[in-house]
Design a protein around this nucleic acid. Structure first.
Lengths: 368, 368
DNA sequence: AAGAGTTACAAAACCGATTTCGGAAGTCAA
DNA sequence: TTGACTTCCGAAATCGGTTTTGTAACTCTT
């Protein structure tokens, strides 16, 4: 009863032309056993009536939804993750070209995420999933694998062998980062990371250590601070590391958000970024460009990643073996202005910082 | 044939219990004419088999999709709009509570957007639409209104009488902004706006002018610069206005993106923000907090707006008269640190700026 | 104890497409 | 002519639910 008004069905078209609805369907789906004359009349009627087949009815019969799903984690009111925003943008663009749509849902906890996944799979609202921010042991991937439900991951898990994924070579990037900082003259290089359940955080930590080892330096656990992957976390991480007796002169952060927090911290205490303290982020977010100084960061084009991942998932749905759809890309270091040669030794930095701590902190905190 | 493996249907449940499938359906939909014994047996079987009804089949019969749609405009590779990201986040959170999902698609041009809208409506993939960034004469609203397809707008059009919307009182906000700047001591106040086809840009311009009028100042077209609503636009706008013979000492920008561009510009020429030049943005983006200095801005909580708009659309779908679902909210000025009393007169500012222009510009531009 | 109501469910129709099946009409070879 | 093939399309089954309709078996009335 409450039908959408003006919605024309295949029966309307069939009646209008005087054929069976099956015939209309065959014309629209390019079957060959239709005479040219009839085809033309039907096409004409379709155009006249503005008929478009109901996605629902078609899906019911076909068993496909032409829709992909993504579940994004949300914190408590913290605001959208800019990386994910770019990523989703990239997915949607890619899907648009293929006539598919993207279903976006949120989850506020790990349980909620699995629950949502479960619902969407069981109710068959989507044909496949895109998983982001993979964890070392990811319950989502376990769930979807077990259900044999198509999906693709952005990032790997501890065992990346059985599914399609796209990832960045995080180890290589961070090893490079260490080498880069070392060549700038930094001897003590700090690391601000995130929960080691997040695979990218773990990989970047490994890369950081590998980079040090390659230089013959033993990694110092004191220089590794694990925090919430957010601006607040970066702030806290900077505080922790710069308070050390022998603080690092350079900080390698696993995300731009963390790096932004570090910048905040340094600004608050009047430490000059790019000389007193060097900061490097990761994500290549556009925001970084507008920071003062513009943030040096590893870029992986979230948008591009979204597009790639979407296309991989389409391939999976088309029957390609997921195992053959695994790809590793390199991150590129975008040097802006937050890195440079150290202006002083760790000891001097420590002294400077303590000085600043005792004075009224630099008044650049927020007004009202 | 290519059915999702392990997908259990209502028939499976019915057979398992030994009842008709209609009976199962009635149990699941809380009909009363079922004996307790049968109800229990069916519920038991449902749990045992892990049955969840197919959304598609249900939708086909019900004529509803439990899905809302949003079409977001995307530029050419420019990156995601942070405001929209927050907005969508807010929508998705609200919908999650109600068991609805959000379909996100992109459109790269106005025509493409209408086309996408058309497709989604005709194929009935969504029950209603959320329209953002309304234009003074919005073809999307015209289209949906004519089709009598449910929708809600974030922002109004020139004739806002016939549909549901949520908007901010842009005029009031900008009039307030002018008053605020004037009270800080600014005599020449500039305006950096966007295309006047965007209703919010038009309204904010009106508000700006009203604010001036209320102070008995006649608005000066030279002080109004219309740009692309982006960082680049802000940069260009700042350049245009600060190059005037009598430049404004304060710039009111219609979005934070523009304000960020202004900050960039001032940084490049070594103009101190909050004293030499005052900048105020609009959107209350979290990013603004991390700028140096933190951006003073009108906040309207994109996330909150998303939630409100979503709930309004639900109400429309539930039969509430859209005309009764119109709401105007106030923007709040968040004072951070980019506004302050002018440190000099327009003439002095002009001289200072010309000086800086002739020297090598301050070297804070990006390194490679 | 007969007619009137309930109760509790089975059976069937329906939503709007796609796809299978089968048959009428036309074509061709024998 | 007649049987065998095509060509073209109508009829019906199907996807997996929801909703309507119908009815057997009880329970009340009076």
């Amino acid at each position: 009863m409450q039908r959408i008004p003006g919605s024309v069905t295949i029966d309307d078209v069939a009646r209008h032309v005087g054929v069976a609805k099956g015939t209309v369907s065959r014309v629209l789906n390019n079957y060959t056993d239709i005479s040219d004359a009839t085809r033309k009349r039907i096409l004409q009627a379709v155009k006249e009536l503005g008929y478009q087949p109901s996605a629902t009815a078609r899906n019911l019969k076909r068993g496909r939804q032409d829709t992909l799903g993504i579940v994004i984690p949300v914190g408590h009111g913290s605001g959208a993750d800019p990386f994910l925003a770019e990523f989703i943008d990239g997915i949607a663009r890619a899907l648009d070209e293929l006539g598919l749509d993207l279903l976006v849902t949120t989850a506020h906890s790990r349980e909620h995420m699995i629950e949502t996944l479960h619902r969407l799979v069981a109710r068959r609202k989507v044909d496949g999933f895109i998983i982001t921010r993979t964890e070392v042991n990811d319950p989502r991937i376990a769930f979807l694998s077990e259900k044999e439900f198509p999906f693709v991951a952005h990032g790997r898990t501890s065992d990346p062998s059985g599914y399609a994924w796209f990832d960045i070579d995080n180890e290589a990037a961070f090893a490079d980062g260490v080498r880069h900082l070392y060549s700038l003259g930094h001897e003590r290089i700090g690391f601000i990371g995130g929960s080691l359940e997040l695979n990218f955080a773990l990989q970047r930590l490994h890369g950081y250590r590998q980079g040090l080892e390659a230089l013959g330096v033993r990694h110092d656990p004191d220089l590794e601070s694990l925090q919430d992957v957010s601006e607040k976390g970066g702030f806290a991480g900077a505080e922790a590391l710069l308070s050390l007796d022998k603080p690092p002169t350079a900080l390698l952060c696993v995300t731009d958000a963390l790096a932004i927090g570090v910048v905040q911290f340094c600004r608050k205490y009047g430490l000059k970024i790019g000389s007193d303290v060097t900061v490097i982020g990761y994500d290549g977010l556009p925001v970084g460009e507008y920071l003062d100084p513009p943030l040096t960061t590893f870029s992986q084009s979230a948008q591009d990643a979204g597009g790639r991942v979407a296309r991989k998932l389409i391939d999976v749905l088309d029957g390609t073996d997921p195992k053959s759809l695994q790809a590793l890309a390199k991150a590129v270091l975008i040097r802006r202005a937050s890195d440079g040669a150290p202006s002083m030794t760790p000891d001097e930095l420590s002294k400077l910082f303590r000085d600043r701590l005792n004075h009224q902190p630099h008044s650049d905190t927020k007004g009202e």
